[in-house]
Simulated assay, not measured.
Amino acid sequence: MKVGVVTFPGSLDDVDAQRAVRIGGNEAVALWHGDHDLRGVDAVVLPGGFSYGDYLRCGAISRFSPVMAEVIEAAGKGMPVLGICNGFQILCESHLLPGALIRNDHRKFVCRDQLLRIENTSTPWTSSYAEGAEITVVLKNGEGGFVADTETLDRLEGEGRVVARYLEVNPNGSMRDIAGITNDRGNVVGLMPHPEHAVEDLTGAGTQGLGFFTSLTEAVFS
Rank of each mutant, 00 (worst) to 15 (best):
M192L: 10
A43T: 11
G145W: 07
H197T: 15
A43R: 03
G158N: 12
P66K: 01
V5A: 06
D154P: 01
R155Q: 14
S122W: 03
E119Q: 13
A28T: 00
M79Q: 08
V147N: 02
R103H: 04
N104M: 02
G186A: 08
F50N: 08
D13F: 03
F64M: 03
A75K: 07
L156I: 10
A75Y: 09
D177L: 03
R161G: 01
R39Q: 15
M79W: 12
V29K: 02
D35T: 06
A130I: 02
L31R: 00
S174L: 08
I118P: 10
A75N: 09
V147G: 04
F221A: 14
Y129R: 08
E143S: 06
R155M: 14
V71H: 05
A133D: 13
V21M: 04
I72E: 11
E73Y: 11
I178M: 08
G142A: 07
G48R: 06
R19N: 03
C111G: 14
R112H: 15
E70D: 13
D105H: 13
P80F: 08
D35Q: 04
G53D: 14
S62M: 05
Q18N: 03
R63G: 06
P193V: 04
V162N: 03
S51L: 00
L12G: 12
Q208D: 15
G83M: 08
V44D: 02
Y55R: 15
N86G: 01
V147D: 04
G190R: 02
G206C: 13
A100I: 10
E27I: 10
E93P: 12
V163N: 02
P124Q: 07
D177N: 15
L82Q: 09
G40T: 06
R57I: 11
L31C: 04
G99K: 05
V199D: 11
L96M: 14
I84A: 07
N120T: 05
A75W: 01
R112C: 15
E119V: 07
A60G: 01
K2W: 08
R185M: 00
L38D: 07
D54L: 08
R117C: 13
Y166S: 07
A17D: 07
L97I: 11
R22N: 03
A43M: 10
L101Q: 00
A205F: 09
P47G: 05
Y129W: 09
G132T: 12
L56K: 09
E93S: 14
A100R: 13
